[in-house]
């Protein structure tokens, strides 16, 4: 795998983004994904990425408390990317904690995902598959459907991206948790009506984002309807090498802790950020603390949802149709 190890073979693939060594489950033959890819309307880079993002301090911005932001909290950098800006660009090529990354967002699948990009940058190909943004890297023009995080064409076909967690939350919650956060501004180099969302509204939820509304393009697979018919139901999705999990967001909000049927994985709800953190539970006993305050008891000791003493699993918010369409074998946990 290019970029995944220190062997000399990796040098042959040094163009393009760094790719991961441990595989993610990917059920589709790349040719089938290519076949199902459609034009989204605008051409390549018709939706322009932001390659020189600008930032401001929290007290310099006028976001409403309920506005959606995608937050990153790392060792050095704490940054919020407003959904109202990302909906017009879908990709922000940035550097976080010294690592070149792409912050990506697809409005049609409700997915905000971060990827390492190495020396290259990502752009919007103008193509969609399963309603999901297909990225391309500017070094090799390989095509990467965002949710699959796997190249389906180009020199990197079959390779998978290294991911970094973004938290889908509201500005009020993010600012409360991270008062020192920076915020990406509207100074993108482009003229856009950033206050208007062409698809709908998250504050309150309406339009394309509303519950029970239909998808814009036909999904890759429709078997998911038998489990949960609401295409826009939000889930916390997690993939491993051999499993795909979809933790029902409303259920997680109510119960605070969701576990797979075999108990191997848990989603711990974090009320401060209104998100969940997924872990491989192994043989540990995990339960919410009595106060339901975002703390959990693991083998008798309390820990915050963000830092359970378990193996974390990358997770992201997604509309159910996106997870079910890409992964027909996804396990729905509610």
């Amino acid at each position: 795998m290019p970029g995944s190890g220190g062997d000399g073979v990796a040098d042959l693939f040094d163009a393009g983004p760094p790719t991961r060594g441990d595989p993610l489950h990917q059920p589709w033959d790349p040719a089938a994904v290519r076949e199902a890819t459609v034009s989204g309307g605008p051409g390549k880079d018709g939706i322009p990425s932001v390659d020189d993002p600008q930032f401001a301090a929290a007290d310099e911005v006028s976001l409403a408390a309920d506005d959606v932001v995608f937050g990153y909290a790392g060792a050095d950098d704490v940054t919020a990317y407003p959904q109202s800006v990302l909906v017009w660009h879908e990709v922000v090529n940035d550097t976080l904690d010294g690592t070149p990354v792409a912050v990506t967002y697809c409005p049609l699948t409700g997915t905000a995902m971060g990827f390492e990009r190495g020396e290259t940058t990502f752009g919007v190909s103008g193509r969609l598959v399963n309603n999901n943004l297909v990225l391309y890297d500017r070094a090799t023009d390989s095509r990467w459907p965002q949710v699959l995080a796997t190249a389906v064409s180009g020199p990197h076909e079959g390779d998978q991206l290294r991911e970094l967690r973004l938290v889908w939350t509201t500005w009020g919650r993010w600012r409360e948790a991270h008062p020192d956060t920076l915020v990406m501004t509207e100074h993108t180099g482009y003229a856009r009506r950033y206050g208007s969302d062409p698809y709908g509204n998250y504050n309150p939820t309406s339009g394309y984002y509303a519950a029970e509304s239909r998808t814009l393009f036909p999904p890759l697979d429709e078997g998911w309807r038998a489990t949960q018919d609401d295409a826009k139901r939000v889930v916390f999705a997690a993939r491993t090498a051999d499993r795909v999990l979809a933790f029902d967001r409303p259920a997680a909000t109510r119960a605070h802790l969701l576990a797979t049927a075999d108990g191997a994985f848990v989603a711990a709800y974090d009320p401060a950020l209104d998100t969940a953190w997924v872990y491989r539970a192994g043989d540990a006993t995990v339960e919410p603390s009595g106060e339901r305050d975002g703390r959990f008891r693991v083998d008798g000791a309390d820990h915050p949802a963000t830092a359970l003493p378990l193996e974390p699993v990358y997770a992201f918010d997604a509309m159910w149709h996106a997870v079910g369409g890409f992964y027909p074998e996804a396990e729905y946990v509610a």
């Binding site: 459609v38 034009s39 989204g40 309307g41 605008p42 939706i47 909906v87 017009w88 879908e90 697809c106 409005p107 049609l108 969609l128 309603n131 943004l133 062409p198 698809y199 339009g207 394309y208 239909r214 998808t215 814009l216 393009f217 036909p218």
Partner: peptide
């Protein structure tokens, strides 16, 4: 705008290659 022709959202129909 963005990912798809908004007329399909307005009309409440799914986009197809022919419609695009």
């Amino acid at each position: 705008a963005c990912c798809g022709p908004l007329v399909f959202l307005v009309l409440g129909v799914q986009a197809t290659g022919t419609a695009l």
